[in-house]
Amino acid sequence: MNSPMLKIENLVMRFGGVVACNDFTAEIKEGQIVGLIGPNGAGKTTIFNVVTGVYKPTAGQILFSPNGIEQHQLTGLSPDKIAKLGVCRTFQNIRLFGELTVLENVFIGNHLRVKSDVFSTVLRLPHYVAEEKRLYEKSLYLLEKIGLQDTKDEKASSLPYGMQRRLEIARALATDPRLLLLDEPAAGMNPQETRELIEFIREIKDEFDLTIFLIEHHMEVIMEISEKIYVLDHGVLIAQGNPSEIQRNEKVVEAYLGVG
């Protein structure tokens, strides 16, 4: 039996006296879309930050298995190493390279896979030029995928909000991830954009053979695309299951609406 792609075991994250995440355990299988929901301040983004190495967890472990055979312990690794293993993310409060162009943003996502050393890039040795050309084509392809090919030379910060979100996803895709973590991809989008986003997530999942872990507040997004949902409240896992189970779960309803 293949090991799951991501296995989070008894994760604890304390900031001083605040317990942002207490004894969280979850499992994501290859090819799944898994949702993580919970009221504001429940600790969802903290879990993403721990998985991607921004924080070092107080206790617990995270195991990542890109191909079902080898297993990597992610706890204690730096964010760039985790990205190299194939875990990439987007940010809740968009973090693009604002002063750079749209194309450059995506192109930078490729950098971690560049094999040439810095001197061959300066001397523009043939093997680097070939590599760069391939990466530019890949970046352009990704831009076309998200429909931003016409704005490739615009400054990233000049894009409208929804496009910036999509650009972040394209930049993450450029790193060739196996597991993609999306932190509120539909935040601030109107219903039309949200519909497009759902289609888009499905499309990239199939095309790039991804496994997706996402945080989202838009219930229609979560309920429609997730195969499995984890619900977090005050750092504690209160429910897990498929969308229909979650909708019927009393604890979840309580957490969201309060006790009547």
Partner: peptide, 15 residues
């Protein structure tokens, strides 16, 4: 340039 623009994002992109 990415490091200049946003260190957190640059690291998340494997830099």
């Amino acid at each position: 340039l990415a490091v200049r623009e946003d260190e957190v994002a640059a690291r998340a992109m494997g830099i």
